[in-house]
Design a protein around this nucleic acid. Structure first.
Lengths: 128, 128
DNA sequence: CAATCTGGTATCCTTCGGGAAACCGATATA
DNA sequence: TATATCGGTTTCCCGAAGGATACCAGATTG
């Protein structure tokens, strides 16, 4: 996967410089998007519907500071849309963008592997 | 953080009780396995073949402390096998277990999404 | 005898993620 | 006037993550 050119068993000098780091980068990008304590909980919560700030705050149990920061990041990455309604106590709704659906595959892959891995470690280890 | 008891507000019934935590835990598991600065670089490096400690240290540019810690974790999770050879300066080889191949789907999903996401943000940010 | 190789440890120190709590301006209610 | 709600922001603080460096024991080489 990583090297397209160096194909001997001992990845030589090319490893860190060329192809490898280019393959590493997108994986890093995706991980950074999902990393942290709250990204996944927020995304999953939003799959259940649109929510207002305080609702997310109370439901997920996240502090306003973190929630604000995470939502901004998600918005910058076009995964979440923020809508302000001119109601009397102003209300703000957050919803997943259609683009956010593209994360489905990733989250599913993570969930499937995680499920199977937990079973493997818990159950009897049938050798590696 | 999605506790197990039903909760206060408008969160659809599934959110706090069943579905949410069932999704959250395995995703968290998988993410924890790949998180950190070095897990993916090490795994990718090891796909090239077996590596000795100092080789990994030099190729990846990781400090011995971190490398030692990460390899132990990977070994505990049955993703890496450690073999000590009774050569003169003792040599230790690390290799991916067959089980580690199960991460392919996950890493591929991450890489594909990351690749596409980077293109998307680059392309669209020209004016916006 | 000193130096160098091996696979690591131990120690110190800085950075960063994240929690707790107070606070903000605008509005509504009592 | 006092209190509450809304969506946040600001400040302080702590523990975890990770880097730099020194060090270890055993064996070979100079």
């Amino acid at each position: 996967m990583c090297p397209e050119k160096p194909s001997n068993s001992k990845c030589p000098a090319e490893h860190n410089s060329g192809e490898c780091s280019k393959q590493l980068l997108p994986v890093r990008d995706a991980l950074d998007m999902l990393n942290g304590k709250w990204k996944i909980p927020i995304i999953i919560a939003l799959t259940f519907g649109n929510y207002r700030f305080k609702e997310l705050h109370r439901q997920i149990g996240i502090t306003p500071k973190m929630l604000s920061k995470e939502l901004k990041e998600l918005e910058m990455h076009q995964l979440v849309k923020r809508t302000v309604y001119d109601t009397t106590p102003v209300s703000v709704e957050y919803e997943l963008t259609p683009y956010a659906a593209s994360l489905r595959n990733v989250i599913d892959a993570l969930r499937d592997w995680g499920t199977q891995h937990r079973k493997r470690l818990m159950g009897k280890s049938k050798t590696a």
